[in-house]
Design a protein around this nucleic acid. Structure first.
Lengths: 241, 241
DNA sequence: CCGAACAACTTGTATATACAACTAAATTCA
DNA sequence: TGAATTTAGTTGTATATACAAGTTGTTCGG
C-alpha cells in the first residue's frame, strides 16, 4: 500500500504538488495536471490522485471547477487565525473556578450603535445583561450584552449564574456566524468598578456580534483587564481565497 | 446517482447523522453506527457511507479512531476564529498608503525569553529588526522581531523598506504554523517614541511566533496604538475537538 | 456567417472489491 | 492465574470501473 519511501501514495502526490506550488513552478491560477494525468504519472488509480487534489483543495491550496480543471489558488492573502473561546470554558480549561455575577438583566430602549448592529429600530426594546465573570474569586471580564428580543424572547427569564449567556444562546439559537473586533482601551467608570482596576490599566475589549439562522442575535462588549487576561492560541496556517 | 429527494446520497447520510447529533439523540462521545452499518441501512456502498463520516469528521462533528469506531465530538467547545492579517496587507486593503521605516537591523545576544521561544541558547546570536509601519504617514505599529539565524541566514542583508519581514520570511521559509497572543498593555518608552503616543494610551500587543518545516523561525512583538488600530474580522463558526 | 450538434476532456458521484492497520475482547495454552 | 494468541470488527488505503454533470472547442449544416 505504501511506496518505496514509506509514504502513503496520496501523500506523495500531495507533496509533489505542494512543492510545485511553493517553488512557484506552478504559478498562481495556473492549471495543474488533471486527475487522469497525475494518475498515469504516479502509476496510481484516478481515485488516489483525486484524493490528493481533493485534500489540497480543502486546505485552500487549489481550487477546482467541474468540467474545467484544477488550479493553483492564490497563496497571497495567507492569514493566520486566532481562536476565540468563551470565558467560562477558558477558565475551566485552566483548571480554575469560574463564577458569574449578574449585575443587571433588563429590557431597555435600544441605543443607536446596537440598533445598527442588531438590525433593530432605535429605541425599540432590546434585552440587556451585565455580568461579571470571576476566575478564582477575582473579577476577570465584564460582559455587557444586548440581545435581539425577536430571536430570543425568553432571554430575561434565564438564570445566568447557572448558565452563561453564551451557553444559553448557543443552545437556543445555534450560531452560524460571528464577528469580532479586538481593541485596547482604557476602562470606563463602570468597568473600573466591576473589575476593580485603576483607571490607568489598559483593557482588552472584544466586541462580538453573533448570528443565527434567523439573523443577528446578540451584540456584546467583553472587557478584561490587560494584566489578567490575554487572548491567545495556536493555530495552523490556512491560505485563503 | 441521486435519491428520490434529489439529494446526493452522501449528503442524505450526513443530514441524518447531523440531525441525530443536533437533537442529542446521539449524545457526546457516544459511538455511532459503523461504515458498514450505515451502508446497509441506507443501501449504499461502504465508500459512500464513509464519505459522509469523513466529511463530518473534517467539520469537527465526529471523531474517529482506527480499529475502534466513530464518535460524536463535543460541540461544547465551539470556538470562533479571528483572522490575523499582516499589517501591510491590511493597510493596502483599506486603500491607504503603507510605509515601513527601518530603525534597527542587527545581530545581538539572544534574550532569555526569545531563546526559549526560538529554541536557541541564551546569548547565542540572534537577528533582530525594529521597524515602524506607517499608514498614510502616521505611525501605526512597531514591529520588534527576532529571527532564528539558522533558519534564515540572510535576514540581515534584506531591505525591509521594500519588502516587509513578513513577506520576506513567507518567501524564504513558508510558514506552517503560527502562535499568537493578544494583550492590552501600556507602551514602554521605545514604543511611545516611535508611535508618538502619550504614556497613558493603551496599546494592543500581538506576540507572534512562527514556524516553518524546520522549526521556529521568528518571534515578534507587534505593538499598535489602541486609538488607531483594532484587530477585527468576520469568520464563520467551526466546532472543534 | 451563425447556430446547433457533437466530441473530447474535465471534475463529481457511486459501486464493488481487496487488503492493511489497528483495537478490543475472547480464547487458548502453559 | 496469567500471558500469549486468535478472532471479529473497525477504520484506512488503494484499485478498477461506470456513469453523471459540466465546460470548451470543433465540426457540421443551414
Amino acid at each position: 500500500m505504501e511506496n518505496s519511501s514509506g509514504q502513503k501514495k496520496f501523500a506523495t502526490i500531495k507533496d509533489y504538488i505542494l512543492s510545485q506550488v511553493e517553488t512557484a513552478a506552478w504559478p498562481e491560477h495556473s492549471r495543474i495536471p488533471s486527475e487522469n494525468e497525475l494518475a498515469t504519472q504516479f502509476s496510481v488509480s484516478r481515485m488516489t490522485a483525486r484524493r490528493a487534489l481533493q485534500e489540497l483543495t480543502e486546505q485552500g491550496v487549489l481550487y477546482r471547477t467541474q468540467g474545467v480543471g484544477s488550479f493553483v489558488a492564490s497563496p497571497k492573502s495567507q492569514s493566520s487565525l486566532l481562536e476565540i473561546r468563551n470565558i467560562a470554558d477558558e477558565i475551566q480549561h485552566r483548571g480554575h473556578f469560574h463564577k458569574a455575577e449578574l449585575v443587571q438583566l433588563t429590557s431597555l430602549p435600544c441605543p443607536g450603535v446596537v440598533a445598527t448592529a442588531l438590525g433593530l429600530s432605535r429605541n425599540a426594546p432590546v434585552f440587556f445583561s451585565l455580568i461579571v465573570h470571576y476566575e478564582n474569586q477575582q473579577p476577570l471580564q465584564l460582559e455587557a450584552r444586548y440581545v435581539n428580543p425577536q430571536q430570543v424572547p425568553d432571554y430575561l427569564a434565564q438564570d445566568f449564574v447557572l448558565q452563561t449567556p453564551h451557553e444559553y444562546l448557543s443552545a437556543v439559537a445555534p450560531l452560524t456566524d460571528a464577528e469580532h473586533i479586538v481593541e485596547a482601551v482604557l476602562p470606563d467608570e463602570l468597568t473600573r468598578q466591576h473589575l476593580k482596576i485603576p483607571a490607568s490599566e489598559p483593557c482588552l475589549r472584544l466586541t462580538r456580534r453573533t448570528f443565527s439562522r434567523g439573523g443577528a442575535v446578540s451584540f456584546a462588549y467583553l472587557t478584561s483587564a490587560g494584566s489578567r487576561y490575554r487572548l491567545g492560541g495556536h493555530l495552523s496556517i490556512k491560505p485563503k481565497t
